[in-house]
Amino acid sequence: MREITLSKAVNEAIAEEMRRDPTVFLMGEDVAEAGTPFKVLAGLVEEFGTERVIDTPISEPGFVGLAVGAAMTGTRPIVDLMFGDFIFLVMDQLCNQAAKTHYMSGGKLSVPMVLRTNMGATRRSAAQHSQSLHALVAHIPGLKVAMPSSAYEAKGLMKTAIRDNNPVVIFEDKLMYQDKAPVPEEEYLIPFGVANVKREGTDITLIGTSSMVQVAEAAADILASEGISAEVIDPRTIVPLDEETLIKSVKKTSRAIVIDEGHQSYGVTGEIAARLNEKAFYHLDAPVVRMGAMDVPVPFSPALEDITVPTPEGVAAMARKLCSGEMIHAA
């Protein structure tokens, strides 16, 4: 199968959906001629014109608000938010408006829009361009949240997001744009709420989101060489969450680590761990462990930044402790 970059996969997904549905349009800063700073949308304005690939002023709350209104009245906007960190600027439009419109209108109105943005530290971009803020929007009922872990997921999830009748937020890892993965030429969609078992194992379940799937896989490699068999699961969407697949795995392995790049406190790792504790308690041989990003603003200095995020070595070390029973009597 051909291999393409995550960037190209997103581009293809959007182009295919724009060809298929004339109500789909794109809007954001430097999306047209520049094709975004990461060049993800390069070439789209040439095919679809400036009527459907719209450069906006640097007015994030404004254009997200426009997208909400446009989505309520017959179009399907894809809004490009250049950095995930800017989600703080658009919280009202996204969380008070888009997320609640369908519910508040008793099901009469809907907001079929996609907000695509990014996440991920270690790019030396400091505290306002490195955050992974998906947990914040996942907290708000009414929003769906997708977190592609490779080019394959990026394409399939984007197409599903565009066709979904709810507001969907997609977080791409900005360090993965140039990573290649096999992506079929033929059309495919990846349904929301269906986790992907990337690797089967019997001793411990490693649940990772976005780039943390790669971290989990690398940890599983380390563990395999020591005789520990790790199962690796990628939930792909955190809202909706495929609890069933996660619970089934933990019932088999009886141990789990949840790895995510958001801050550890009050985050995705805690939510998933809590559900496993509630629904697989009887089967657990050790506490479910959370491994998120350190609870600090992302520091600029490389000497500090690299230690704020989970690593394969760190995950493997934790897995070893869990498998040897060390965590059971931990204070």
């Binding site: 400091a126 505290a127 306002q128 361009h129 600029f300």
Partner: peptide
């Protein structure tokens, strides 16, 4: 800033510079 801020967040309290900002308009 002891390396915590980098180019986009240099602040110099002693001279009244409350800081660079990576959020446009921030």
């Amino acid at each position: 800033c002891r390396g915590k801020g980098g180019s986009m967040h240099i602040a110099d309290q002693s001279n009244g510079n409350l800081g660079a900002n990576a959020i446009v308009g921030g």
